[in-house]
């Protein structure tokens, strides 16, 4: 099995001319961050249009948290640059933080505070705070304001963290693994609340996740991060539509050469009789001997992460 890295520039341009071009909410250009000798993130380039709900997908340790921390100014880049709403996060932190919400991994909250006290804290710390956004949301979810945060379930704590972030009325909301620790039901509830907020407040969202389930229905932009690099970035539907699984009689390297000239092979596997590929089509497929199958977000993501999809075992 080979693993090909796709140049992302072409793809970003193809995405940009979609509908009327909205300004970009997040732009990264050659962005890199180094811890000692190790690059946690390198040559990261993408432009995420405003109004998108983007998924930042990749295995643990791929650099997702590093990228998010660079976006809110918690880290300073060692290479390249990132801008959020036109601001450089590390240099213009104050101006940016008034417009950006960030929920760190495991949604850290003061466990001894009641929910009401937590909201008071948020009100005192944020200039554009709107209490009713948080209180109405929490009332709808039947989360009591007089309860201590530490006594709430994991799902409820996540909802409190989200309500806090939404009440500051951010234009961009960044979430680091918001659903990783939640059970499937709480995960769906959390994403539902997030999507309702997108309807009401019309913000740009970037959420990282190593769980691909549920992202397809929630996100319309995708960034795949693996081995500290961006493997793929662009409009979710267009990316899924341009990737296909091709199954056909066994080919060797030389007979695959014509295919490679136009298309990009992301993943290939061979048996003595059969060849199966996951390709990114860059034009019409001329060879009719391939059986062409649609792929799911999971198939595509796993191919870029270089792992065989789990579902494959059952087929």
């Amino acid at each position: 099995m080979s693993h090909t890295i796709t140049p992302i520039n072409a793809n970003i341009r193809s995405v940009a001319h979609g509908e009327s071009e909205p300004p970009n909410a997040i732009e990264a250009r050659g962005l890199g961050k180094r811890y000692g000798k190790r690059w946690a993130l390198s040559e990261c380039t993408f432009s995420m249009p405003a109004g998108k709900v983007a998924a930042l997908v990749g295995p643990n340790g791929a650099g997702k948290t590093t990228l998010l921390h660079l976006c809110v100014g918690l880290l300073r880049p060692d290479a390249g640059a990132v801008t959020v709403l036109g601001y450089a996060p590390a240099a213009q932190t104050k101006a940016l933080l008034a417009r950006v919400g960030f929920i760190a991994q495991d949604h850290p909250l003061y466990k001894d505070f009641t929910v009401a006290e937590t909201l008071t804290l948020g009100r005192k710390l944020n200039p554009h705070w709107e209490d009713t956004i948080a209180t109405e949301r929490l009332a709808r979810l039947h989360i009591p304001l007089d309860q201590r945060v530490g006594k709430l379930s994991g799902g409820q704590q996540a909802q409190v963290a989200l309500a806090l972030a939404l009440a500051k009325r951010p234009q961009v909301l960044l979430l680091d693994e918001p659903v990783a620790s939640l059970d499937p039901l709480a995960r769906r509830d959390f994403l539902r609340t997030l999507m309702e907020a997108v309807v009401e407040q019309g913000m740009t969202v970037l959420l990282s996740s190593h769980i691909v389930a549920d992202l397809e229905r929630v996100c319309d932009y995708l960034i795949i991060l693996a081995a500290s690099r961006v493997q793929l970035a662009g409009d979710m539907e267009m990316l899924i539509a341009s990737h296909k699984r091709l199954v056909g009689p066994r080919r060797d390297a030389s007979s695959l050469a014509p295919l490679r000239r136009t298309h990009t092979i992301i993943e290939e596997s061979h048996t003595p009789r059969q060849t199966s590929l996951l390709v990114r089509l860059n034009g019409p497929l001329l060879d009719p001997t391939w059986e062409v199958q649609d792929v799911t977000l999971e198939d595509m993501t796993l191919a870029y992460l270089g792992q065989p999809p789990e579902s494959e075992a059952g087929k």
């Binding site: 539902r192 999507m195 309702e196 309807v199 549920d214 229905r217």
Partner: peptide
């Protein structure tokens, strides 16, 4: 749009 988002927990743009 709001009703569909509430029911399916999906992106309103969809």
């Amino acid at each position: 749009v709001r009703e569909v988002v509430e029911k399916l927990a999906i992106n309103p743009n969809t």
